[in-house]
Simulated assay, not measured.
Amino acid sequence: MCRILFAAGEGEKVQPLLDALVNASRKDPYKEARGKGGQHRDGWGYLLIKGELERHYRSTMPIFNDIKEIQALNEELNGFVVLMAHARAASQGDVSLLNTHPFAFSSWRGFSFWLLHNGDLDKERLIEMAGFESNDLAGVSDSYTLAAYISRNLRGTSKEDLLEAYRGAMKTTRTSFNTVTVFQDDTQELRAFITAYSTEKRVKDPKDWDYVKLLSLERKNLFAVASSTLGLYHSASWEIIKNGTAMHLSILPQERKIIHVTADL
């Protein structure tokens, strides 16, 4: 499983969250407590949207070793930004650029999206539900398969369409279905959709829940969602997101405005 970050708001408030992601990936006490080692070192990637800039970056290098790119990203964190980032600890699929998050897809329904996922899914069931051929997806991860499933099944970016598509995919969850997706169409508005779900087994085990739960942070000019470990490296008024929650965000960069609503998955 992996460590994730989504943040929208003023760049200088996002910088310490990026630092926390790097540190959480280098040494994760929650992962260590489960006997799974302490690092998320199987590649990392991010999407940054800032004004006219849109940058999608992926590398198989551990995030904590990719010093030049982290420095370059930090230099861009000024003004109003939207950032999603993922540090991978591979559970399914090879360590490769193809399997490194976030994944970029364009739908024939007129929108593009970037998706990242933390957890473990039943890949074969996803393939069957989507009507894909198993051989075509033999070398990819469950998370890549999820992105392909969403691309095929999502009708639009309304809250109702998103809930329908993601609820379907959530049925394949083996451990967690923690996702962040950012959508872009021909308007100046960005949309984001976040899911926080783990199976009952994970929620009831204290060590598992410490590891898989998602946190949210909301203050003036900042909205963020992050994996639990980031809370150990950045002291703030984090709140634990209720298990089985979806968040639908409308982001208006020119107005520096974020509108979000929650729903049950």
Rank of each mutant, 00 (worst) to 15 (best):
G119Y: 01
L115N: 12
E124H: 13
N118F: 00
H117Q: 08
I150N: 03
D136V: 15
L146N: 00
D122I: 05
L137E: 00
V140C: 15
V140E: 02
K123M: 09
R125C: 13
D161N: 14
N118P: 10
R152G: 12
N118C: 04
W114A: 02
S151A: 12
N178D: 10
V140H: 08
E133Q: 09
R167V: 03
N178G: 04
L116I: 03
L126I: 04
G131R: 05
W114D: 06
L121P: 11
H117A: 08
A148H: 07
G131Q: 02
S134T: 11
T145F: 02
G156M: 01
L137C: 09
L121I: 09
G168N: 09
F177N: 00
R155V: 13
L115E: 06
V140M: 10
A148L: 14
E128H: 10
N153K: 12
A147Y: 01
E128M: 09
D136T: 15
I150W: 04
Y144E: 12
H117E: 04
L154K: 06
F113P: 05
T175I: 12
L146S: 03
F132P: 05
F132M: 07
H117R: 11
N135E: 13
N178L: 11
Y144W: 14
G119L: 04
R152I: 04
A165M: 05
E133T: 08
R155F: 15
S134Y: 07
L121G: 07
N135C: 00
I150Q: 01
G156L: 01
E128A: 14
E133W: 01
K159M: 10
F132S: 07
T175N: 07
A165N: 09
S143H: 04
G131H: 07
K123R: 14
